[in-house]
Amino acid sequence: MDIFIQQLVNGVVLGSIYALVALGYTMVYGILGLINFAHGDLVMVGALSALALLKVCLAVGLGLPASLALATLGAVLLCGGLGVLIERVAYRPLRSAPKLAPLITAIGVSILIEYGAAMIWSKQYLALPPVIQSTTWQLAGAAITDLQVAIVVMASVLMAGLLWLIRATPLGVAMRATEQNAEVAGLMGIDTHRVIAITFLIGSGLAALAGIMVLLYYGVAHYFMGFMLGLKAFTAAVLGGIGSVPGAMLGGLLLGLIESLGAGYVGELTGGVFGSNYRDVFAFIVLILVLVLRPAGLLGTASGERA
């Protein structure tokens, strides 16, 4: 039972991170109908750039809170800018091209970012300096750290903010209008290029924040970390219903739980034939199952809310 609750806690933390990344996939997919393969790599850029900035800030003698804040700000700005740049340079010229072209471009962008990062930050696993002291609480037999709580709270606040933005602001209306029908939205005076750029900006900023959470949680970052994370976040988006913002949140959370519990129990369930080294397989199985059983996802219906 203790293990169960522990895995539940881990799953919620993991799920919050997946959800943040899934939002980026689902927003871009909703508005452009494009799987932005480079999105996972922005998480990696967020983590590695934040780590580099954090080290610099600490080295010049800034305090931990100030360093962390600066590193976060820097990483979010960098990723946001990078996201907008990618959209402008790589995807926008291909709006009227055959569907295969932006997909191939997206995988090209992903590879370019990964190996660009390898060039800048090397291919080593880079460790976070031991500056974050986390307190551990015992709850119903499970250990919970304040860092875990902070991640879940932060992610929830960000997601609530995004929902508010989409539902209650003029920008959100413009985004939903563009998603419904870009041509008509353009005729109604909405600058759809700008709306799409803002979508990339927000999605990439969230990716950077997710990257920082991963960095703090696991204590390491790596040039290839965005690949598997991106794949899982996309699975989460499909699970929730691609194009649906609440769906991405639900899908992320569910996938985190499935993966944690799956990895925790797979050894017992299969009599030791499969171990937790197969944890990355769960997301894939979920993806295939969703595509077979409910391709629209849990919250995705033809008339469902999208953003």
Binding site: A90, A101, I104, G108, V109, I111, L112, Y115, M119
Partner: peptide, 11 residues
């Protein structure tokens, strides 16, 4: 990196 760039440029 060249592969990634090539995919983008070609498209």
């Amino acid at each position: 990196m060249l592969f990634g760039l090539a995919l983008i440029v070609m498209m």
